[in-house]
Design a binder for these strands. Structure first.
Lengths: 345, 345
DNA sequence: TTGTAAGCGTTATCAA
DNA sequence: TTGATAACGCTTACAA
């Protein structure tokens, strides 16, 4: 009983149940269920009486109990696991997921994995035990075959932002290779031949893909890849800034830089402030102040909110009975020229 | 049955229950419950047998059913209602809440109200029906007395970022008045006497408080408040930019501007780019690129993540039985001078 | 239109 | 150490 009082500190009186409402209204429990559940076959007078009693008692149906018996046992909840809710990119993804969930009268349980496979697994396990109706996951590295049994048992799964190995599941990603190539081609189009790269470690799917786009574009333009102006492994703003400082301090420094993600872009900008150079920059991923900094930043970017929406829509399609073969949806990227990418060498 | 197949499209076989595990292990259901729940009083051999059976069948305990019977009926879930998960400020708040929730083995159901009282109420109602253990709410305008019954019945409630009328509940806010006054005093200290204001409508708590800080600081410095350089009602970046453009176009334009929130700050910056003026700016709320724009932006800001953490900590304290009188926690703000606030008139 | 009984999957109670 | 049975609060099935 200590547990009870501890978990419900102010509970002078416990929550009323349908039984209480039934007693107050002088009807059976089933009639209460019908009246409050909006079912037909209840006299208006009875319905009114029940509703009045419910209101007076402050009754709130216990969805947990209701779902237990209900067919499918759905709690109208979907689980969302992302890298970090605090990161603006994933915040937008979350927003998109939430919008679609609301359209389907579902709520979203969200959690951050911080890119930790162990934590991811634990969290998803907790979600599954709660019987979420479906899962949207931005997969941390590693194998995801442990999700296969639950998928087979009917909990749909959609990967977002990057695909995962080990399970056959839908995925929604942005056109990383193509977008990166567009960015680099844009720089080449403005006369650059010596284009540096600052981005995340190649262990990450998006980083790997974007780097591939970078090298592809160089190859198509017959520009030789020069590893001395490539800096992978910049996972945060500070390391990206440091990497950029190195590039700018070099003898044969690049005339342009392609930044592989929003953190890298910010790092590059920060380093360039100190440097007072006149170097072109195109970044992958947009950010709010891209048009306020000087020069305004040219970016190529996918739409994070649309990514979240698309993933959620795929999930609800599966939930609605879609049995089509698993597929990966690739969302387009857009290049927005704002100045920094149009600087000549 | 259509509903079933629709909601669990791939469900070839249904999820195994403890009954299935019991049959497979040759024990009773209660023994399975004990073995899997880590209860004492089970022979090691039996426990092993049960665990093996559970693993083989792919059993996952149904927390919904478990919580129904368990004392207190907790689903270890807290509800978080904020203005917009996609807004970086609230994304950080969410992150803070999530961290503390995880420390207490709880998950977070989050949703956005978009500042709509109707939507807020519906969403909170859904949360309450799901029997969340507690609620953290960034209140949309209006009266919140409708939450009083649930609070009295033992669902703790903490308001975040702004207090709410109609219920006696804990709240965590930042020092808006003082922070704003600090910002304006900073400008005054650098020689400004003609300081404009661009911020949100005074219907919003934070906007009202910050405006109060602005007027307080002017009064202390014996500077007469001039409404012609005050622009309230700028809720988004565009309107803030437009408002700023007006101020800058005026005959007797201000030599400095205090921006009441991050959107307003960005709007001010955007307008200033076009204007080519040499006007000082201090903004309320920090943002990631504040040190990259030119000039770098001086801001006064509270810590959004800390706000989320503090709110969640208050909630879990209540959940743990804290019966102290309701209180409002005021988090300090910090002024970070970066350049834009130190420009002389 | 309303009510009775059974059952959802688990844990609490109490007996073996 | 184990198990049979009730109970959680609700909905489904069926009867009145």
């Amino acid at each position: 009983v200590t547990t009870l009082s501890a978990s419900r500190p102010n509970a002078a009186d416990p929550r009323p149940t349908m039984k209480d409402v039934a007693a107050a209204a002088g009807v059976s429990v089933k009639t209460v269920s019908r009246a409050l559940g909006g079912e037909s076959g209840v006299q208006q007078a009875t319905r009114d009486r029940v509703q009045a009693a419910a209101r007076k008692l402050g009754f709130r149906r216990n969805d947990i109990a209701a779902s237990l018996r209900r067919l499918g046992q759905s709690m109208a909840t979907i689980g969302l696991l992302i890298e970090d809710v605090g990161n603006p990119f994933y915040a937008s993804v979350t927003r998109g997921v939430e919008e679609v969930a609301r359209e389907h009268d579902h709520v979203v349980i969200a959690a951050s994995s911080d890119e930790d496979p162990e934590l991811e697994r634990e969290t998803l396990s907790a979600f599954l035990s709660r019987r979420v109706d479906g899962l949207i996951v931005v997969p941390a590295g590693g194998d995801h075959s442990y999700l296969a049994p639950d998928l087979a048992r009917g909990t749909p799964l959609v990967f977002a932002d990057r695909p995962a190995r080990g399970v056959e599941a839908d995925a929604v990603v942005v056109a990383n290779v193509r977008g990166a190539a567009d960015a680099v081609r844009h720089l080449i189009g403005h006369g650059h031949r010596r284009i540096g790269y600052v981005g995340d470690a190649s262990g990450l799917y998006t980083a790997r893909e974007r780097y591939r786009g970078y090298t592809n574009a160089l190859r198509s333009a017959k520009i030789k890849l020069d590893q001395s102006i490539v800096r992978q492994g910049a996972h945060d703003v500070d390391s990206a800034a440091a990497a950029t400082a190195e590039l700018l301090a070099a003898e044969e420094k690049p005339t342009a830089i392609f930044a592989g993600n929003n953190r890298a872009t910010i790092g590059v900008l920060r380093a360039m402030r100190a440097h007072r150079g006149r170097i072109a920059v195109v970044g992958f991923d947009d950010f709010e102040l891209a048009d306020v900094v000087e020069p305004a930043v040219t970016v190529v970017a996918g739409d994070a909110r649309a990514l979240g929406r698309a993933a959620a829509e795929r999930l609800f399609a599966r939930l609605a009975g879609d049995h089509d073969p698993v597929r990966t949806i690739v969302l387009p990227t857009t290049l927005t020229a704002r100045g920094s990418g149009e600087i000549k060498p």
